[in-house]
Design a protein around this nucleic acid. Structure first.
Length: 955
RNA sequence: GCUCGAGUGGUGGAAUUGGUAGACACGUUGGACUUAAAAUCCAAUGGCCAUUAUGGCCGUGCGGGUUCAAGUCCCGCCUCGAGUACCA
């Protein structure tokens, strides 16, 4: 029988599904192992060969761990809420649920063909109400929590209320909004219920706040910073503007330090950790308050500030408080709230013009134009906290409203941007560094800093001066040491239809209230149109049945809203990362309707042992999900505060695009070799029209692009040769290769092996279908090893294996095991090839070799392995067979082919016994005729002998 | 600019702590089998020089260095890729 991969693969895929071979038990005596893939968004275009790369790697690992006796959890699901389905719905009126269902079906078919060992009984879909019930549930837990900095964890909001009642908020050390007022217990008691709720919102871990957001008018939605690329939306490329809106936010900043610290205990790729570290952006320094000098203000314009009561203060954050005596001006962001208050009437026109000009400039302009220096003087002066000297206050768009306090103390001698600004506007640049020339540029080297001209800081190093100045600032009440983070709270509202509804309604006073947990899920309502409403409300504003009755606890018609028992529901939905922030835990107990997961289950599975996915999620999903995990840990819901011990980023598989060359003017299509210096326009040709020798099927090409029907094709040697270039695999570049076609022609086992054989998992590499014949003929060779005779019938013998056979086998076991443990899957494929080549040459037929070999290969090529295993007489699946045990003694050699080198260059090899001593080796080598030939009569200066390794003769 | 990663044959790539550079494949060339093709098998394949077998020289982005020995370690560059961007 020939190697009939189609029959074999279909047979075993059916077998695995029918026997639930890969179902993981939640109670097992075995040690657990959790292998997770980043679940896909089921897009309309299906999978291309780049998508399964990570899934194949994780599947090999999962199968390997089963052979090693672990209880393996290896689930798969779908991140099925998202914009493309909604866009499609807007265009066609088709409900996103239907599109999503169709796409999922297609994904499932494609995945099934690849022979993955997923436990499909645990499938989750983020858009399934049985799943998003728990996404909403976590939202409610966040809403009912606040962050206690003293305890360094999230705590119940009820406890916070209790301490407000007792002592007000003066002793509460919490992560809360900047503008939270101080109040006493009696103040609290006197607050109205509305006021109390508003205060509490400033503490909740998810809260409603006016936020400056990136509004995309074309999409009718707000985008996160990481969804904007070059100032336009990542999807669709529409323009984005800044706008203030009331939005739900997640207080992720409360966890900034713990998110940073947690990175130390997880085995994730360093580049990924680095980008999270940069994203969080911790910097140490001081916050300093500068009084605005009242005398400089324009009393006519600012009567209140003149009274001295509401004294204006500019608060800055600086990482170099040691340079405070070098401050020669202050700079505020143009958006800073103080700008309008302190500007003098003389400067008013100029300042207002500048503020208006910067507001008009798009983010894009501001970003593109880093070099030009602009700003305006407000006319106001601040007072230096130590020298009491007046400091002019400027505004400039190089200071960002969104970072720190939106104001800086400008020290031109120590900061290049301040330096450039000062030079441009002719502001003095006092030098406060000892023996440093600042005539050309600022001096920012902390290590070499010695402070001068700075009163009590003179002669101190950066470290000492910083310590001292912070102490002094605290003494005079003008500032304190502070740690600042770049990380912002995450906006959590989306003006979209196809996302999780917030379990929130608005009460009589417009205060958000969560619905009772036991009434979850709050299911998405039906709408006529998926676009924002005419009044600019999110798509849920189109729903007619979207109000909450607090007596019956269900959704009712909007016409019943009376603000007494029936209230309007939230119209925003949650962002894409909501559902993906908890799925890895839900897989452990996906059908549980009473709890997000049972405590027994989470305590058994604990966390993910291996997580494989793309690096593009470094600062999105992978940061938010860590935040939620830490929150759940604080609430005692999960046993560990980092959910993935090890993470690997698979590299991208790029496509190899093909081009034809159309000559300008003539319109002729010229073969690559004839282009030379002719003026040509390269045009993408579909890669399926090109064979492995880069030759184009001209007739097929003409049929594909009708405009070329009559074009003249200029050939070389009777062929049209296309140009090739490596690009991202994408539909628009016509270089997409579909895994279904590969499976059809070569089989899933070949595809699995080939994807691994391409190169290291983490590296990006180009796809070239031609190479797959190598692994495919390897599988055929493997098949022949177990079959013989003219009919190629299955035949193995019971004869004892030879020493050689055993050596080949154990060498392979050792290498493959090491490779899998090191995620070096490409090298184990070549190891298999070497093994099969050797066993074929040895004419090995021994069951004692071929049995273990089938298990070794089974993680990589599971279908053929099952078939061979069955041929060997086994009735049980190979999936749980134990991995062959490596035995060192089969590899022990008695001799070694020593490389004999002269001055470091290998000239010949010499076989010598391994137990031969240094001196004897040297004697044998020196006596050898080739040695004499090499030396040509010279006497060597030195002979290096490393027993078991090498001999090097110097001289 | 900063951070990270990577440069090895025509191509993908291999080389455990410094110890035989180019494993394993693809491609190419030649051969066997065949009426023919496919499939399969065998051989050669880093470059240059020499050739009667034996040989010689050069070679892991570039320039230095350490070492008996460097793709691997150190110093200084170059190029490409990814991320990030006026972060005070």
């Amino acid at each position: 029988m020939k190697y009939n991969f189609k029959g074999i693969e279909a047979k075993w895929q059916e077998h695995w599904a029918k026997h639930k071979t890969f179902k993981a038990k939640n109670d097992s005596e075995k040690e657990k192992f959790y292998v997770l893939d980043m679940f896909p968004y089921p897009s309309g275009s299906g999978l291309h060969v780049g998508h399964p790369l990570g899934y194949i790697a994780s599947d090999i690992y999962a199968r390997y761990k089963r052979h090693k006796g672990f209880n393996v959890l290896h689930p798969m699901g779908y991140d099925s809420f998202g914009l493309p389905a909604e866009q499609y719905a807007i265009q066609t009126g088709q409900h996103p649920a239907i599109t999503t269902e169709t796409n999922i079906k297609r994904y499932r078919e494609q995945l099934d063909k690849l022979g993955f060992s997923f436990d499909w009984s645990r499938e989750v879909r983020t858009s399934d109400p049985r799943y998003y019930k728990w996404t909403q549930w976590i939202f409610i837990q966040l809403f009912n929590s606040w962050y206690n900095i003293d305890a360094d964890k999230a705590e119940d909001i009820v406890d916070l209320i209790a301490s407000f009642e007792k002592d007000g908020n003066t002793n509460v050390n919490a992560s809360c909004d900047e503008d939270t007022p101080e109040f006493s217990a009696s103040d609290w008691a006197a607050f109205s219920s509305k006021e109390k709720q508003e205060i509490l919102l400033k503490y909740r871990l998810t809260y409603l706040a006016d936020a400056e957001v990136n509004w995309c008018p074309a999409l009718g939605t707000v985008l996160a910073n990481d969804e904007i690329v070059n100032g336009v939306s990542e999807r669709g490329g529409h323009p984005v503007i800044r706008k203030k809106m009331t939005q739900w936010s997640m207080r992720i900043t409360a966890y900034a330090q713990r998110l940073l610290d947690g990175l130390k205990k997880i085995d994730w790729p360093q580049p990924l950790k680095d980008s999270q570290t940069n994203w969080i952006g911790r910097s140490e320094g001081a916050s300093v308050k500068f009084k605005v000098q009242a005398s400089t203000l324009d009393s006519a314009l600012h009567p209140e500030s003149e009274t001295g009561k509401g004294e204006n203060c500019i608060e800055v954050f600086t990482t170099r408080p040691d340079t405070i005596f070098g401050t020669s001006f202050m700079t505020l962001a143009p958006e800073h709230e103080l700008v309008s208050k302190i500007t003098t009437s003389a400067q008013k026109a100029e300042v207002e013009a500048y503020v208006e000009a910067t507001a008009k400039r798009s983010e894009r302009d501001r970003m593109a134009d880093v070099k030009s220096i602009t700003g305006a003087f407000t006319g106001a002066f601040a007072e230096h906290p130590f020298t009491k000297e007046p400091i002019p206050v400027w505004i400039g768009d190089y200071v960002l409203a969104g970072y720190g306090t939106g104001a800086v103390m400008s020290v031109p001698c120590g900061d290049q941007r301040d330096y450039d600004f000062a030079k441009h506007f002719g502001i003095p640049i006092p030098n406060i560094f000892e023996n440093v020339d600042i005539s050309e540029e600022a001096f920012a080297d902390k290590e070499k800093t010695i402070i001068a001209n700075s009163d009590f800081l003179n002669g101190l190093s950066y470290t000492k001066a910083t310590k001292k100045i912070i102490a002094e600032l605290e003494k005079i009440g003008a500032g304190k040491g502070k740690v600042n983070y770049r990380l912002r709270d995450a906006v959590f509202s989306r003006q979209r239809y196809w996302g999780e509804p917030f379990p929130v309604y608005y009460d009589t006073e417009g205060i958000p209230q969560t619905i009772g947990e036991k009434y979850l899920p709050l299911e998405l309502p039906e709408v006529e149109k998926y676009l924002p409403t005419e009044t600019g409300e999110p798509p849920l504003g189109n729903a007619t049945h979207w109000a909450w009755n607090i007596e019956t606890n269900n959704v009712v018609g909007n016409n019943l809203i009376d603000h007494k028992t029936v209230f309007p529901l939230e119209l925003n939905t949650m962002p894409g990362w909501a559902g993906s922030s908890q799925y890895f835990n839900r897989y452990m107990d996906p059908l549980n309707g009473d709890a997000i997961f049972s405590q027994e289950t989470i305590n058994y599975w604990q966390d993910v042992d291996l997580y494989i996915g793309g690096s593009e999620h470094a600062t999105g999903h992978l940061l938010y999900s860590r935040f939620w995990q830490k929150f759940m840990f604080d609430k005692g819901l999960v046993p560990v505060d980092e959910y993935a011990k090890k993470l690997i980023n698979q590299g991208m598989i790029t496509g190899t695009s093909a081009f034809v060359f159309r000559e300008e003017g003539t319109g002729n299509v010229i073969s690559k070799g004839l282009v030379k210096d002719k003026k040509v326009i390269p045009i993408h040709a579909d890669v399926s029209l090109v064979n492995s020798s880069d030759e184009l099927d001209i007739e097929a090409f003409k049929k594909w692009q009708l405009e070329y029907t009559d074009a003249q094709f200029i050939l070389e040697e009777g062929k049209y040769i296309v140009g090739r270039e490596v690009e991202k695999m994408s539909k628009s570049k016509y270089n997409v290769v579909n895994p279904d076609e590969i499976c059809e022609e070569y089989g899933a086992d070949s595809l699995r092996l080939y994807e691994m054989f391409l190169g290291p998992l983490e590296q990006s590499k180009p796809w070239n279908t031609a190479g797959i014949t190598g692994v495919h003929s390897f599988l055929k060779k493997l098949w022949r090893l177990y079959h013989s005779g003219a009919e190629a019938t299955f035949s193995v013998s019971d004869i004892e294996p030879s020493k050689e056979n055993l050596k080949t086998l154990h060498k392979t076991i050792k290498k493959v095991e090491e490779d899998i443990e090191n995620f070096s899957f490409n090298t184990s494929v070549s190891t298999f090839m070497i093994c099969v080549n050797e066993l074929s040459a040895q004419k090995c037929t021994s069951r004692k070799i071929l049995g273990p070999l089938a298990i070794l290969i089974s993680p990589y090529a599971p279908h053929i392995a099952e078939e061979l295993w069955q041929g060997l007489g086994h009735t049980e699946t190979i999936s749980h067979a134990s991995f062959p045990k490596f035995e060192e003694h089969y590899l022990v050699e008695s001799s070694k082919e020593y490389p004999i080198s002269f001055n470091g260059k290998m000239r010949f090899t010499l076989e010598l016994p391994l137990d031969m001593g240094k001196e004897d080796i040297e004697k044998s080598v020196m006596a050898h005729e080739k040695t004499q030939h090499q030396l040509q009569g010279r006497t060597p200066k030195k002979v290096i002998v490393v027993p078991g390794k090498i001999v090097n003769i110097v001289g």
